[in-house]
Design a binder for these strands. Sequence first.
DNA 1: GTGCTAGTTAGCAATCAATGCAGATTAGCA
DNA 2: TGCTAATCTGCATTGATTGCTAACTAGCAC
Lengths: 136, 136
Amino acid sequence: MKSPTELTEAFRANGLKVTPQRQLLFRLMHGNTMHPTADALFSEASAQMPGISLRTVYQTLTDLASMGELRLIDVGAGAVRFDPNVDDHHHVVCQACGDVRDVYVAGSQQLRIDGLDGFAVDSTSILFHGSCAKCA
Amino acid sequence: MKSPTELTEAFRANGLKVTPQRQLLFRLMHGNTMHPTADALFSEASAQMPGISLRTVYQTLTDLASMGELRLIDVGAGAVRFDPNVDDHHHVVCQACGDVRDVYVAGSQQLRIDGLDGFAVDSTSILFHGSCAKCA
DNA sequence: GTGCTAGTTAGCAATCAATGCAGATTAGCA
DNA sequence: TGCTAATCTGCATTGATTGCTAACTAGCAC
Ligand SMILES: [Mn+2]
Ligand SMILES: [Mn+2]
Ligand SMILES: [Zn+2]
Ligand SMILES: [Zn+2]
């Protein structure tokens, strides 16, 4: 994801307004490695800006996603998570505490896929399930 | 997933009763390669047994899953899908029509995972996104 | 076969995540 | 400074799933 300053320009360039709510979310997401849910971000945002609405959080995250600045991660349980890391990477999720961490996977282009049968593959998501160091 | 006959025995052996509703669902799921949602199964079941409840479909599928007879597949959109194929396999999902197909992946044990950082991996799910032959 | 009872079913309420909607508000520009 | 399209908030609604409970029944004992 771009920096808050760059996002400010990018939003204006797209005819989108830069509001205090959006600026706050730019800051909360920039460099965030927690893979937070919308609700988790809403809590953080509310601490700094009481009165901000969950609806606005969803809206801004959706805008950022459709601009390609965020990825949505579905770990198969609970709410979708938002990821400012748009590099080619994958995830490990702790079955116990739900923590999600970035992993970089080598060899994913060498996978032999049997049974494709006319299917054209655009992208691949690999999800590793396990337990983190704390929950070991 | 075991055959309906084997499941009948397995359920009784676990102190679970074998009802007509469950037997119907055993039959509908056995060998089913559609990766249906609970609601899709409910529709099929209702055609053969009017009055069966969606609640019972969910309950039976959950029972089968906790006996290890079914896998739950989350393709990141809409409802969870149920899979009687418990072999080691993965999935392709068509972005256009939502169809899910089994794929068998060689080389998934050779993946080099960077950034694990104390995380112990138990299992891996690979989801390929693309378009099926029909939606090409 | 009859009766008992623990387990099951159906139906509906409740929850959770996410989106739809509309009136009040405001960023950005002239 | 004023205009207006875009945004925000708060609330209603949807969709998937789970919780709850009274009525029902499979499976077992007699
Ligand atoms: Mn990530
Ligand atoms: Mn499958
Ligand atoms: Zn953990
Ligand atoms: Zn398709």
